[in-house]
């Protein structure tokens, strides 16, 4: 049996339940990092597919796994976008077009700055900041990132410091 047919034959009830319970929040977590709604929602769907295809992610820690994966997907995408921008300048001289509403939205300077900083600090720091900002408790963050709950506070503090330093380095103000 191929992987595809195996998946197709499995009961998708658990996937449906997880999706209906967590999709909106997962999409919004990603949406903080990826401004484009369509892409953010596409990545959010990917998170659920990954969860579905990864039996070890099921069980008690499924929720934490989902949010951790959502943040990682988003950060990976953000970094891909930054790399992509470097390749896009190969064509950009030739491909100037009037800005679309999407481009105008993306051009929000402060959003751009914050995303640049998130792309530049370490993955772990960005994950901590995004999950905390999403409202996850220290305990939830500990589960999501496989940390000891007692360490989360100090790790968050370091993440905030790293964010501040990178922000100042790049943009010269706090």
């Amino acid at each position: 049996m191929t992987v595809s047919s195996e998946i197709a034959s499995r009961d998708t009830g658990a996937l449906d339940r997880m999706f209906r319970t967590h999709y909106e929040r997962v999409a919004r977590v990603i949406g903080r990092v990826i401004h484009d709604q369509a892409r953010a929602e596409e990545l959010a769907v990917d998170v659920f597919l990954k969860w579905w295809r990864n039996p070890s992610a099921h069980g008690d820690h499924a929720e934490g796994w989902l949010y951790r994966t959502a943040v990682r997907q988003a950060l990976d995408e953000l970094r891909r976008q930054r790399r992509r921008e470097r390749v896009e300048w190969l064509l950009q001289y030739a491909l100037r077009t009037p800005p679309t509403p999407e481009h105008l939205y993306a051009a929000s300077e402060e959003q751009r700055r914050v995303r640049d900083v998130l792309a530049a600090v370490s993955h772990r720091h960005a994950e901590l900041l995004l999950l905390r900002h999403e409202g996850l408790s220290y305990q939830d963050i500990a589960v999501a990132l496989d940390l000891k709950a007692t360490y989360v506070g100090s790790l968050l503090s370091r993440a905030q410091d790293a964010f501040r330093k990178e922000y100042v380095k790049r943009h010269g103000t706090t």
Partner: peptide, 12 residues
């Protein structure tokens, strides 16, 4: 600063 990233849309 992170608050500026709040999506201005609702997931479909």
């Amino acid at each position: 600063r992170l608050a500026v990233l709040e999506p201005g849309w609702n997931p479909e």
